[in-house]
């Protein structure tokens, strides 16, 4: 059996289904959910290949301890565990591995049966290396979902059961005392968009052309850390090691110099376009098309050209 950790704060329903499909290629899947699934959810997880659904009342924004305890109760000595490679997923996975004394592998982009039990692949060092690692079956693995290839699932009709456990957090676990919700932005989500247009220091705080161009072509808007730091973009827009990882068809970095932390969040993009006035900017070493020029000029020209080419809407 392979237990799959779902419902993490920083994962999405789509990413969870990818995780289930990755796991279904390895073994019979048992999902851990944070609440009772409705009929649609049972059907969707079954279609992705889940055989069993176990749930408990676990708050996605609560401490990780109860999630760890629930997983520990769920897995037998020979079972594997798969969690999303997100901040929350990695935390639960690491704590579980420590608690059960199991090997841990973080950030896989594929997982298969082989070697002593499992063979996982991952990239390292800003995707400059591809690693293949062998682990025993009873390991804890976390996997990325952006841009991974998932095998077609064999649909199942999962059984649902509630975990009967005392999942009270330990007294020292951190407590959420306030939450300021963020407004859902317009346009496609960063992690799902086919095109991402990100702005950085070179915008000088003016994201209007980036937003206009992105809106015209149905792209999502991202940003560098500097732009978030300056208050020009909201934190959930930040692409990079410390923000969101994206894997679009085309990533357009406008006025972003290309610090390694930023590159880490966009290496999975199929094509990278960089627009920067500084021909020495590191981003020009990490792109497919480099435009040396002012992003405001280039994007204004692009907006004008797209508008001209598009049929006029009434």
């Amino acid at each position: 059996m392979i237990a799959v950790l779902l419902d993490q704060l920083d994962s999405t329903a789509e990413a969870d289904l990818i995780l289930v499909r990755l796991a279904a290629a390895v073994d019979e899947v048992t999902c851990l959910l944070g609440s009772a699934p409705d009929r649609d959810r049972v059907a969707a997880l079954g279609a992705a290949g889940a055989s069993h659904l176990a749930w408990a009342d676990l708050a996605p924004d609560g401490p990780s301890g109860p999630w760890v305890a629930a997983l520990a109760a769920l897995v037998g000595p020979d079972d594997a565990v798969l969690a999303p490679s997100t901040r929350a997923g990695n935390e639960v996975a690491a704590r579980l591995a420590l608690r059960l004394g199991r090997p841990l592998s973080v950030g896989a982009d594929s997982i298969a049966v082989g070697g002593p039990g499992l063979v996982v692949t991952s990239t390292a060092f800003t995707a400059t290396w591809h690693l293949t690692t062998e682990l025993p079956k009873a390991s804890v693995v976390t996997a990325v979902s952006a841009g991974v290839q998932v095998p077609p699932p064999t649909p199942r009709t999962p059984g649902v059961r509630r975990l009967e456990l005392d999942l009270t957090p330990a007294p020292h676990e951190p407590v959420v005392v306030a939450a300021a919700p963020k407004a859902a932005g317009a346009g496609p989500r960063l992690t799902e968009a086919a095109v991402v247009v990100s702005g950085g220091r070179g915008t000088d705080g003016d994201f209007s052309l980036i937003e206009e161009f992105a809106g015209l072509i149905g792209a999502a808007v991202g940003s560098s850390r500097v732009a978030v730091d300056q208050g020009w973009a909201s934190p959930e827009r930040q692409v990079g090691q410390t923000g969101v990882s994206v894997a679009p068809e085309v990533y357009i970095a406008a006025g972003i110099s290309g610090a390694v932390q930023h590159l880490a969040g966009m290496v999975a993009a199929k094509q990278v376009v960089a627009i920067n006035t500084d021909p020495d900017a590191p981003i020009f070493r990490a792109c497919d098309l480099g435009i040396v020029g002012d992003l405001h000029t280039v994007l204004a020209d692009a907006v004008a050209a797209v508008r001209k080419a598009q049929p006029v809407h009434c």
Binding site: G101, R102, P103, L104, S105, G115, P116, G117, V119, A124, W129, H130, L131, T132, T133, E134, L135, P136, S139
Partner: peptide
């Protein structure tokens, strides 16, 4: 225990 990078 048992983790081994087999290729890079």
């Amino acid at each position: 225990p048992g983790t081994r990078t087999v290729s890079a």
